[in-house]
Computed example of a mutant assay.
Amino acid sequence: MEDRNLLKQARKRRKWSQEQAIVRFEQIGHRLKIDVPSRSSLRTLFSMFENNRREVPAAYRPIFCELYRAPEEDLGLAVKSGVVVPALTALPRALPGAPSPEVITYLSNILTEHIRADTLLGPLYLVPAVQAQLPLIDRLVQSARGGDRRHVLDVATEFAEFCGWLYQDSGDYECAMTWTNQALDYAQELADLDDSGDGRPS
């Protein structure tokens, strides 16, 4: 069955993975002097755009037109769905302070509740909530040091892995692979910390 999302169709015609499209999107955004979110945020946004969960903001439309060498109409960007979805609030550019144990526990508790909610609501209702927290978690990974970094990477790995599982359970295997790969990246960084001896609890 052909996917009806024109952005996804345009990407697949070029045989690009979502990650390859995101890298090109970033490059074009910088060239056009348009602010683009972090890589983690773009993964979330691309998934939402390609699954009709969020309309593409006007600021990003020139980037998509350049990316796929197509007018807005051919990419479905000029068509209004009639569904108003609040835009993601941009995170501050500055990295947050080092996460406290309370913040790490808070995120772990949220993940536990998400896992419990999945059995009650199903994956389609959980994906937006889980994805909305991943950009913050990625920022915390960047700012954490020492033993805190290990704990944040643990949580980040579990969050990304769970997001991948939700997409797989929803039947969107490409997005599932994107987030599973992100989980593997976090896990590899965690393994590197173990090998180097950094970040081990004292």
Rank of each mutant, 00 (worst) to 15 (best):
residue 1 M to C: 05
residue 1 M to W: 08
residue 2 E to V: 05
residue 2 E to T: 03
residue 2 E to S: 09
residue 4 R to K: 14
residue 6 L to T: 13
residue 7 L to S: 03
residue 10 A to S: 11
residue 11 R to H: 03
residue 11 R to S: 06
residue 11 R to E: 03
residue 12 K to I: 00
residue 13 R to S: 11
residue 13 R to N: 13
residue 14 R to V: 00
residue 14 R to I: 01
residue 20 Q to M: 14
residue 22 I to A: 06
residue 22 I to H: 10
residue 24 R to D: 13
residue 26 E to C: 08
residue 30 H to F: 00
residue 32 L to N: 01
residue 34 I to G: 08
residue 37 P to S: 07
residue 39 R to N: 04
residue 40 S to I: 15
residue 43 R to T: 02
residue 44 T to V: 15
residue 45 L to S: 02
residue 46 F to E: 01
residue 48 M to P: 01
residue 49 F to S: 05
residue 49 F to Y: 12
residue 49 F to W: 15
residue 51 N to W: 03
residue 53 R to W: 15
residue 54 R to G: 02
residue 56 V to P: 10
residue 56 V to A: 07
residue 57 P to G: 05
residue 59 A to D: 15
residue 59 A to Y: 09
residue 60 Y to D: 13
residue 63 I to D: 03
residue 64 F to E: 04
residue 65 C to G: 00
residue 66 E to M: 10
residue 68 Y to G: 04
residue 68 Y to R: 00
residue 71 P to D: 12
residue 73 E to C: 07
residue 74 D to T: 08
residue 77 L to H: 00
residue 79 V to T: 14
residue 80 K to D: 09
residue 84 V to C: 04
residue 84 V to K: 15
residue 85 V to N: 11
residue 86 P to L: 04
residue 87 A to Q: 14
residue 87 A to C: 10
residue 88 L to P: 06
residue 93 R to F: 11
residue 93 R to N: 13
residue 94 A to T: 13
residue 95 L to W: 02
residue 95 L to N: 10
residue 95 L to K: 01
residue 96 P to E: 09
residue 102 E to Y: 05
residue 106 Y to G: 06
residue 109 N to H: 09
residue 109 N to T: 15
residue 109 N to Q: 15
residue 111 L to Q: 08
residue 113 E to W: 14
residue 116 R to M: 03
residue 118 D to W: 08
residue 118 D to Y: 00
residue 119 T to H: 13
residue 122 G to Y: 12
residue 125 Y to T: 14
residue 130 V to C: 01
residue 130 V to H: 11
residue 131 Q to C: 04
residue 131 Q to P: 05
residue 132 A to S: 15
residue 132 A to D: 14
residue 134 L to H: 00
residue 134 L to V: 07
residue 136 L to I: 10
residue 141 V to N: 01
residue 144 A to W: 03
residue 145 R to Y: 08
residue 145 R to N: 03
residue 146 G to N: 06
residue 150 R to V: 00
residue 154 D to E: 11
residue 155 V to Q: 06
residue 155 V to N: 02
residue 156 A to C: 08
residue 156 A to I: 13
residue 158 E to Y: 09
residue 158 E to C: 00
residue 158 E to H: 07
residue 159 F to E: 05
residue 159 F to P: 04
residue 161 E to F: 14
residue 163 C to M: 11
residue 165 W to R: 10
residue 165 W to F: 12
residue 166 L to W: 03
residue 166 L to I: 10
residue 169 D to N: 14
residue 171 G to Q: 01
residue 172 D to C: 01
residue 175 C to W: 01
residue 175 C to P: 07
residue 177 M to D: 08
residue 178 T to P: 13
residue 179 W to S: 03
residue 183 A to V: 01
residue 184 L to H: 10
residue 184 L to D: 01
residue 186 Y to W: 05
residue 188 Q to I: 02
residue 188 Q to R: 10
residue 191 A to W: 06
residue 191 A to T: 14
residue 194 D to T: 12
residue 195 D to C: 09
residue 197 G to D: 01
residue 197 G to V: 11
residue 198 D to R: 08
